Simulated assay, not measured.
Amino acid sequence: MAEVLSDSLDLEALRSFVAVARLGTLAAAAEQRHRTVSALSMQIKRLEARLDTTLLIRGARGVTPTPNGEALLGEARELLRRHDGLVARISGRGLSGQVRFGMPEDYASRLVGRLLPDFLARHPDVVLEAVTAPSGELARRLERGELSLIVALDRPHRLSGGEPLWRSTPVWAGARELVLTADQPLPLALHPEDCPYRQLGVEALGAIDRPWHAVFTSTSIHAVETAVESGLAVSILERDRLTPAMRELGEAEGLPVLRGCEAQLHYGRQVSAASWPAVEALGELVKRQLGQRQ
C-alpha cells in the first residue's frame, strides 16, 4: 500500500488559491476553475487547515492574501510551474492555448529581440499575439479582457495588483546643439495622451508654470527620437535611449526634475483556464529576464 504523507499539499487546492489571489474574488476564480464557489472555498479552507494559518482575508470587495498568503503565493506559483513542466516533458505534451501580450513600444526591442523568441522556442504549441501601445491603452485593454498580460508603467492609468519589474529613469532630451530661450514656450515632441512620460512632463511643467506647445506628436518612439535629434523639439525619454546626437537637459535650461515610474507586470482577469499555464509561463519568463533591471 502506498504511503500517503500527512503533510502533503493538494496541488489542485494550490491552483485554486493562486487563482483566487490573482482574480480577487472566489466567484471569478470558481468560474475560471470550472468549480462551484462552495467547492473552491472548501479547497481553500482545507489548505489553510493543512498549513495551520489564514491565507486570505475576506472583505466586502473580495479577498486579499495575508502576509502568509503572499509568501505561499510565490512558492505555489513556482511549484506549479515546475510540476507542469515536468508533466509536459515526461508526457510529451507541452503548454498550449493563446497568450495575448501587450508592451510599450519603448521596451519592445528588449522583449521581441530575445524574450518572446525564447518563449516560443520552449512552447511551440502556444499561440502568441504580441502588441505595442502606450501604457494607458494597454491598461484599458487588459481591463476589457482583450489582453492576457501586459508590461506597463504605472501611469497614467493605474492598475492594482501589479508585480514590480523596474523603475524607469525619464529625462528631458534635446539635440546636442539645442539652445532654449526661457521667454518662449517649450517646443515638445510627445506621444499621445496615454503615454506616461507625456503626463509626467506636462505635470512637471505645469508645476513651475513653464509654457509649452506640442510641435510634434507621434505614436512612434523612433519618430519622436528623430524629432529630438534634429533639434525640432524637446522630449521626455528613458535615459538609456539618449543617442550621441542628444544631451540630457535639466535645471540649467530651466526644466524641472522628472519623477520616475514603475514598470509592472499585470495579468488579465478573463484568461481561460486552458490558456492560463501558458500566460503564467510567459509572466515568469518576463520576471526572470526583466525584473529589477537597473
Rank of each mutant, 00 (worst) to 15 (best):
T36Y: 04
V99C: 04
L237F: 12
L190C: 13
A223F: 09
D7C: 09
D106Y: 00
H157D: 07
E48L: 08
H213Y: 13
A281Q: 02
E193V: 08
W276L: 15
L56P: 02
G69R: 00
E262L: 14
R144G: 07
G260I: 01
R33V: 06
A39V: 14
M246R: 00
T53Y: 10
L200S: 01
H213T: 15
E105N: 14
M1P: 07
R158H: 11
A278M: 11
A28Q: 15
E163R: 10
Q270H: 15
G206H: 10
L237M: 12
P185D: 07
L80P: 03
R140S: 07
D154L: 01
R81T: 15
A214H: 08
S220K: 11
V127P: 09
V4Q: 13
R89W: 12
E143W: 00
G85W: 05
P65I: 11
L95W: 04
R100K: 15
G92R: 12
R210G: 06
V228W: 01
E75Y: 08
V179H: 08
R50T: 13
Y197V: 02
M103I: 15
A60N: 14
S148D: 06
G161C: 10
L242Q: 04
E251D: 12
L242E: 05
T36R: 07
D106K: 06
Q184H: 11
L205Q: 06
Q199K: 09
V127K: 11
R61Q: 13
H123T: 01
Q294G: 15
A173H: 00
M103Q: 13
P192N: 01
H222A: 11
Q184A: 14
S109Q: 08
V215R: 10
E253K: 07
W276T: 04
A214R: 07
R22C: 07
I221Y: 05
L178G: 01
A60D: 13
L86R: 15
D52K: 13
R15A: 13
S91V: 10
R35Y: 03
Q294M: 13
